[in-house]
């Protein structure tokens, strides 16, 4: 196991370097010149522009810029935005909010996805199963932003049950609707995954044995069927946490949540490249680490993977 962990950790390093280099190149290859645009109509004098360029290392060759940036990431010094706010401060403000949102979405996914999936899988081919399957396809087919608007309009405006937008410093109640919207698509996937897995395991030999030796039905369902069916589901949920943090861009935009997604989108439109690169690096890092943890968890659960 230790050898497997070591090998997987070593594999992460080139992937992280490659992905950040890719993003860095994309962001800084853009044609516009943010420094020249800083001064607005009148423009900055050449000397001031020169000074800003050297301060942000923009006068150095691309690869040197990237290496300097990488050094900053390792020492947790992400630099300053053009308006002289330390990027690390903005990150420290935005990350907890997005993390809370993603975590809430994950809990919603797990509870409803596994719950409905279990019931559907136990009675495969039944009325409930059919209804839930078609509904889950429908949820996957409706884009997140459409779902967000409909929820906002129906639950927020017409019924008035939940606040429409979150605003600064969102609490649990105001994050509830965004979390539901963010969770919807993945919930449908979790449901389908659980259903297939349960329906497969229910006809396994060990379940028949458990029934034959007289265990109560509920105990067989929870201890034998569900536990074994959850392995692929847990894998999906783990990898999804990373995707949720990144996929929150649209949801945070609709519900006006000052999280990573909203900050990132604003940074892109205003050309704050330092901030864009820092936030995307962060999101990619979360995604890679989440996938790594899932792989390790899977290897711990299933010894066949370790020796493959």
């Amino acid at each position: 196991m230790l050898w497997y962990i070591g090998r997987r950790l070593l594999q992460v390093i080139p992937v992280f370097l490659g992905a950040t280099l890719l993003l860095y190149a994309m962001v800084f290859a853009l044609p516009g010149d943010p420094v020249a645009a800083l001064g607005g109509e009148r423009g900055l004098s050449a000397a001031v522009q020169e000074q800003i360029r050297s301060q942000y290392n923009l006068d150095k060759p691309f690869i040197v810029q990237y290496l300097l940036y990488l050094k900053g990431v390792v020492t947790l010094d992400f630099g300053m935005t053009f308006s002289h706010r330390p990027v690390i401060d903005i990150i420290a403000e935005a990350v907890p909010i997005t993390f809370r949102l993603a975590l809430m979405a994950l809990v919603i996914e797990a509870i409803f996805g596994i719950g409905f999936g279990l019931v559907a899988g136990l009675r495969k081919g039944g009325v409930f199963d059919g209804t839930v399957l078609v509904l889950s396809l429908l949820v996957i087919a409706v884009p997140t932003f459409v779902l967000g608007f409909v929820m906002q309009f129906v639950v927020g405006v017409q019924l008035g049950w939940l606040p429409i937008t979150a605003g600064r410093d969102p609490n649990f109640v105001s994050l509830l609707m965004p979390a539901m919207v963010l969770a919807a698509t993945s919930l449908a996937y979790v449901l389908r995954l659980t259903r297939t897995s349960v329906a497969e395991n229910i006809s396994a030999d060990y379940v028949r044995t458990a029934r034959a030796k007289g265990l109560p039905r509920a105990q067989v369902t929870t201890r034998h069927v569900l536990r074994n069916s959850l392995i692929p589901v847990v894998t999906f949920l783990g990898a999804d946490l990373g995707a949720l943090m990144g996929g929150a861009i649209v949801t945070e935009g609709i519900f006006n949540i000052p999280g990573v997604g909203g900050t990132l989108f604003r940074a892109i439109t205003t050309g704050e490249n330092t901030l864009v690169v820092s936030l995307t690096t962060l999101l990619v890092l979360v995604y890679i680490v989440a996938n790594l943890l899932v792989d390790l968890l899977y290897a711990a659960l299933d010894p066949r993977i370790r020796y493959a």
């Binding site: 594999q11 992905a19 995307t280 995604y287």
Partner: peptide, 24 residues
């Protein structure tokens, strides 16, 4: 495979938003 891993590590919508906002 490593090249695939690198591209896989960047979520699709995130990458698309970053590149599309850069494209002229």
């Amino acid at each position: 495979s490593r090249l695939t891993d690198i591209f896989f590590a960047v979520p699709l919508v995130l990458a698309a938003i970053v590149i599309m906002s850069v494209l002229p």
